[in-house]
């Protein structure tokens, strides 16, 4: 398998940087020394070509770094050996036939630098050196892939542990009423981050051990409310989610402009969204109706000119409480 290569031109906008994938992120975080392998076979420049021939034959290799002491000074390959054999010059020192000044990569470089080199040079392996030019190891594309996979596996385990801990969050805390409050500030007109809060809330609930169906219902309800804040408010608004073992209470509030006719607003198909917003696929007039289908109770209060407050509640059954160690591995029905 080829390693996943990030766009080598890497002219990322700020926005794109916020959205790079975990494997790309890892390519920046991991150092070459964490993924390289030690050089199994090296030769000293003072050795003769006959010794290279013997080494290549017994070790079944096609190339080796050439060192002067510990310092990397070149590379000897099977092509070099063939040239030497044609000349019948097997007693010559390696330095006569080796390729000097090879391209190297530093042990402290991020893996992404190596990926760029692999892409731009089409070379399959690079010697890894330290600051003094001493050979530290060899890096192949396979090493990078293996290293990234290992790191992803590590990430996955960390997430599993996090999930386990979070899913038991409320068990060890004694109080008359324990809850966890999440707050998200939503900026008016910020379509780029539309859905970010609802995704985060859904993920948090899954970590806390919520039934996937509950997490989905909450995610959908919050998404619609989040988009309403982005589309309709003057100054944005706040989403406040209070998670308790037996219920999820969500409050979405803003300071304007407010809804002039609340009854009309909850009617399916009624929308006040302007044309430009509708062209993006919003403004179907189904938002509040969707929310009401996902929650157990919904209360909408609004004063035109003052602001709007939407209160939602999702009730959890005894066998699907959050943060008390219930597993969320199954459950696939729709809201």
């Amino acid at each position: 398998m080829e390693p996943k290569t990030p766009n080598p031109s890497l002219n990322l906008s700020d926005e794109a940087i916020g959205n790079i994938s975990r494997s790309e992120e890892l390519a920046y975080e991991l150092r070459v020394e964490e993924v390289m392998t030690p050089a199994a076979h090296v030769v000293q420049s003072t050795m003769i070509m006959q010794q290279v021939l013997d080494l290549f034959r017994t070790a079944r290799i096609s190339g080796a770094p050439v060192l002067d002491g510990k310092k990397l000074i070149g590379i000897i390959s099977i092509e070099d050996l063939i040239r030497c054999l044609i000349e019948q010059d097997c007693q010559a020192p390696i330095s006569k036939y080796m390729t000097p000044s090879v391209m190297t990569i530093k042990r402290t470089d991020p893996v992404v630098e190596a990926l760029k080199l692999f892409v731009s040079t089409k070379v399959g392996r690079f010697p890894v050196v330290d600051e003094e030019g001493n050979l530290e190891g060899i890096l192949t594309k396979g090493d990078v892939t293996r290293g990234l996979l290992k790191a992803l596996q590590r990430d996955y385990q960390v997430e599993e542990i996090r999930r386990y801990r979070a899913s038991h969050l409320f068990e060890d805390i004694v109080s008359d009423r324990t809850s966890l409050i999440l707050r998200y500030n939503i900026v008016a007109g910020d379509f780029t981050h539309g859905g970010a809060a609802s995704s985060a809330i859904k993920r948090a609930l899954l970590r806390l051990g919520a039934n996937p169906q509950i997490a989905r219902r909450t995610g959908i309800a919050v998404y619609e409310a989040e988009m309403n804040l982005i589309i309709h408010t003057t100054n944005g608004g706040v989403i406040r989610v209070e998670i308790e073992p037996h219920q999820i209470s969500i409050e979405i509030y803003d300071d304007g402009p407010g809804i002039s006719d609340v009854d009309l607003a909850v009617k399916p198909g009624y929308s006040t969204a302007p044309e430009a917003i509708r062209e993006l696929g919003f403004g179907a007039g189904m938002g509040l109706y969707n929310i009401s289908r996902c929650v157990d109770t919904m209360k909408l209060e609004s004063v035109y000119g003052k602001g709007t407050r939407l209160r939602l509640r999702i009730l959890l059954k005894d066998n699907e409480t959050v943060g008390e160690g219930h597993s969320n591995s199954k459950g696939d029905s729709r809201p």
Partner: peptide, 17 residues
């Protein structure tokens, strides 16, 4: 299937898995 291509389609698609 949609002809929308702006970034919010990903949020919607993610929430509907």
């Amino acid at each position: 299937i949609t002809l929308q291509a702006h970034s919010n389609i990903v949020a919607v698609a993610a929430l509907r898995e």
